[in-house]
Simulated scan of single mutants.
Amino acid sequence: MLTVRSNLALACALSALAGYVDGIGFIHLSGLFISFMSGNSTRLGVMIAEFNWPKALEALKLIALFVVGAGLGSLIGHGRGRHRRWVLLLAEAILLGAGATAYELDLSGYTVVAVVLAMGLENAMFQAEGGTTGIALTYMTGTLVRIGQLLAVALQGGPRLAWFPHLLLWSAMVTGAAIGTTAYLHVHLAAVWFAAGAALLIAAIVGLAAWRKPAR
């Protein structure tokens, strides 16, 4: 799917958004993640081994919210055809906006809830037939594996640059995380407003493209 230029641009934008939010979450939650549930799962195991039950419960709550968000994304996107992506993006922007509003109301706990739901929902953006995710947006382990595999293919005479789109996707997340961390250090959780605005802008661009595209 990353061979299509529009898919690659959207995937990179959303991966950067996920990295941005995860950078915020990592600092705010003292080492837990907003969108990287593999990391939270490892931390959960460590906290259980250390009998750190409050932190273990916090990690488990984040994982559960992410799963709920992923399911919510599947439900929202189901049956919407060419309009599913911008509808999902609008829902993501609303959740992020709700999270930012909660911070302004001094309810930062609800900010975390809304943002984790938004990140789970984002993974439905490239959901393939059968309910599986076609492109990973909020985690990069599989993407790095693909880079290594496709480099090996290139060395054996296969496509020389098939690995490059995956490198762009990884780079987008790293860049987003750096920007998100910087924003959090300056304006705390108010930085979520920028994420909400970015999601709304992307939704508008994708929605305009969908409305202009002839129905099949």
Score class of each variant (00 low, 15 high):
Met1Lys: 05
Leu2Met: 10
Thr3Ser: 14
Ala9Val: 14
Leu10Met: 04
Leu10His: 04
Ala11Ile: 12
Ser15Thr: 07
Val21Tyr: 04
Asp22Ser: 06
Phe26Trp: 15
Ile27Asn: 07
Leu29Val: 06
Ser30Gln: 15
Phe33His: 13
Ser35Ala: 15
Phe36Met: 11
Phe36Arg: 05
Asn40Thr: 10
Gly45Tyr: 12
Gly45Gln: 11
Glu50Pro: 05
Glu50Ile: 03
Trp53Cys: 00
Lys55Val: 07
Ala56Met: 09
Leu57Ser: 13
Ala59Thr: 06
Ala59Pro: 14
Lys61Asn: 13
Leu65Ala: 11
Phe66Gln: 10
Val67Asn: 04
Ala70Thr: 03
Ala70Tyr: 04
Gly71Gln: 14
Gly73Pro: 12
Leu75Gln: 15
Ile76Phe: 14
His78Tyr: 15
Arg80Pro: 02
Arg80Phe: 05
His83Met: 09
Leu88Arg: 12
Leu89Asp: 02
Leu90Ala: 10
Ala91Cys: 14
Ile94Trp: 14
Leu96Thr: 00
Gly99Asn: 11
Gly99Arg: 13
Val112Pro: 06
Val112Thr: 15
Met119Asn: 04
Gly120Ala: 03
Met125Gly: 06
Phe126Tyr: 08
Ala128Cys: 06
Glu129Ile: 05
Glu129Cys: 01
Thr132His: 13
Ala136Phe: 03
Ala136Gly: 00
Ala136Thr: 00
Thr138Asn: 06
Met140Gly: 05
Gly142Val: 02
Thr143Phe: 00
Leu144Val: 13
Arg146His: 10
Arg146Cys: 01
Gly148Glu: 02
Gln149His: 13
Gln149Tyr: 10
Leu151Tyr: 12
Ala152Cys: 14
Val153Thr: 12
Ala154Arg: 15
Gly157Trp: 10
Gly157His: 04
Gly158His: 11
Gly158Trp: 08
Arg160Glu: 11
Ala162Gly: 09
Phe164Tyr: 15
Leu167Gln: 04
Leu169His: 07
Trp170Cys: 03
Ser171Asn: 09
Thr175Ala: 13
Ile179Lys: 03
Gly180Asn: 08
Gly180Met: 00
Gly180Val: 07
Thr181Val: 01
Thr182Glu: 09
His186Thr: 10
His186Tyr: 09
His188Trp: 03
Trp193Phe: 11
Ala196Ser: 07
Ala196Asn: 06
Ala196Arg: 05
Ala204Tyr: 04
Ile205Glu: 01
Ile205Gly: 01
Leu208Ile: 08
Ala210Glu: 08
Pro214Asn: 05
